[in-house]
Nucleic acid binder design. Structure first.
Lengths: 339, 339
DNA sequence: TTGAAAGCGTTACCAC
DNA sequence: GTGGTAACGCTTTCAA
């Protein structure tokens, strides 16, 4: 780093002056419109050699300003503490980069206020589109903030409203299948630990869970249903509640996210680790380390690659003006570690 | 989303016209320079009510263009697959947001080419500063790319060069301590699985490891040292090599990152899970699930919060013109699960 | 085949 | 106290 912070940045104007041609000409050449404007080969050569020599890189920022597109998209996620969201974010970032976009991120911790602020910040910086793992269940706030009508794609969680586009995992099916698995293991008292009920990933998973109970004629005990947040702490507290307040002792527990399961583990370690030996476990979200735990956890692994790619693909289409995009539901993968 | 993508965005000019005052005046009021320029209360009121009513939000993008600062910083990390880097990224993002900055990210997968491209992309979009978890061991390439002399803070890994500023964990001490722990457990044949040797986090950890061996008069067997990449695959292969090629059977293994340890686990599962019962394990990077594994892993947890905050703090200082920043070395936390 | 000029939305300098 | 005007670096339209 030079101790002297100032440093002259060269521009098209400079190149033009050095080459003895106009800014327009240089601009044409740089943007590959030389042929189109039938610019002479020698001019092209001359300009290009100077560009080369000066290591000139056009100021994308100024260009974006002029073109009203920043080649940047904004992503708001809940919390990358969950491995699933890390991977999702990474996929999107790679996809974006491959298409010449930059990704700017914000984590909301599922706080509506933080989410709104992040969106506002992105919008005021003119991102070309937004991908939201939103904590809101409808798009009212987003419509209100989004005065410039920038494309929004909802990811992971369903958000209702007119003309919304969502990319989600088939949460209902995933939860059904996992619960079904419990049924086939002759479990009868299955507990459910969910996240915030207003979020579709929680409610849909609960719906799938309930449907499976019903289908297999298993008892439904409100005592064994706990809802909270999608956090480790909430998972801990929910487990505590399950084992202190419930009249029935569960023989299986379904957690609606990785974080909730980790919370359950924490409680188990602290108070009574061997509950985990007796109780069957299933969860949404997978983690590589599950393979090495002493208790077998069945899980639903969301297809982060496909989700990320699909979402970005829709973003691209939306940017190109196509606003009639269909929702996409992506099938998850089941990882059965005990059957 | 409105089916009609166009939507007029209002500007200071419009506000000025509506209020019957000049753009200058509006600008002053919006930027809180009303008092400074002694603008009359009624003008302020009038302008403010229109701003309110129109929900006018100044175009940060245009402002950034004019001011030559985007209030955006770029972060390049290796791979958020490692929980540690996820957390680091999150801390930085939050810190950035609190200070009114946006964070744009790219993952390089420790590919020099990808890293260079990401940096170039960020630079051409005029980020105000860069935070790099770089795969390069000196800053030559960065200096070359960084023609505008934008502040760069190196994170996690030491990069050499003139006037570089690095924020790192005390890798030497961490590795020494972990190895020391092995010594106190009467291990004698300690294996080391490292990442890319040119990266300081690998070499420093190796140095600490070696120093501890020496200090405790433990044998050093080249057979038990394997270097590769900081990836799960590399960890897998390294473990394989350890157990197929080595003449000595290790009684302890030190992995230089979470990913390497996961690779070791994979190998163990595939071929001979019970090696893990007999062999003591220690690793850099912690993961919450380590607490629930059947084999006890000692670990060094890097202080992501402090690292992220420190790095961002230095960024802020650098942006303000202070280019004489000291390197910061942050002590890690030891998590001893078996002693 | 090349160039001049206007304009994007904002800020800053200098008049009035 | 308020307003005109130029400028940031780029693209684009139109003219030559």
């Amino acid at each position: 780093m030079n101790p002297n912070p100032k440093s002259p940045t060269i521009s098209i104007k400079d190149i033009a002056r050095m080459a003895g041609v106009s800014k327009t000409t240089v601009s044409f050449i740089i943007n590959g419109k030389a042929k189109e404007h039938q610019i002479s080969t020698e001019t092209i050569q001359k300009v290009q050699s100077i560009v080369e020599q000066m290591q000139f890189v056009p100021n994308e920022f100024a260009r974006g300003f002029r073109l009203k597109q920043t080649k940047t998209i904004g992503l708001v996620v809940g919390d990358v503490y969950n491995h699933f969201l890390s991977l999702l974010e990474k996929t999107i970032e790679i996809e974006a980069r491959n298409q010449g976009f930059n990704l700017v991120i914000a984590s909301s911790d599922d706080d509506p206020e933080l989410e709104s602020r992040a969106i506002q910040s992105f919008l005021s910086r003119s991102v070309d589109a937004l991908i939201l793992v939103s904590v809101y269940s409808d798009n009212k706030i987003h419509q209100q903030l989004n005065t410039r009508n920038i494309p929004i794609i909802y990811l992971d969680r369903v958000v209702t409203g007119r003309h919304v586009t969502c990319v989600t995992t088939d949460n209902y099916a995933g939860a059904f299948k996992l619960t079904e698995q419990f049924a086939s293991q002759s479990c009868r008292h299955i507990a459910f630990i969910g996240g915030r009920p207003s979020i579709s990933t929680s409610s849909e998973r609960f719906r799938g869970f309930q449907a499976a109970l019903e289908h297999y004629h298993l008892p439904y005990s409100p005592d064994l249903i706990v809802h909270g947040e999608f956090t480790v702490e909430a998972g801990y507290l929910a487990t505590k509640q399950l084992f202190s307040a419930a009249h029935i002792y569960p023989d299986a527990i379904f957690t609606a996210s990785y974080t909730l399961l980790e919370g359950l583990f924490q409680y188990a370690r602290e108070f009574n680790l061997n509950i985990l030996q007796r109780i069957k476990l299933a969860t949404f979200d997978d983690h590589p380390l599950f393979d090495f735990l002493p208790f077998k956890v069945n899980s639903v692994q969301q297809n982060t690659e496909l989700m990320g790619k699909t979402a970005f693909d829709l973003v691209l289409q939306a940017i190109r003006g196509n606003r009639n995009l269909e929702n996409v539901v992506i099938p998850p993968k089941f990882i059965i570690r005990q059957s």
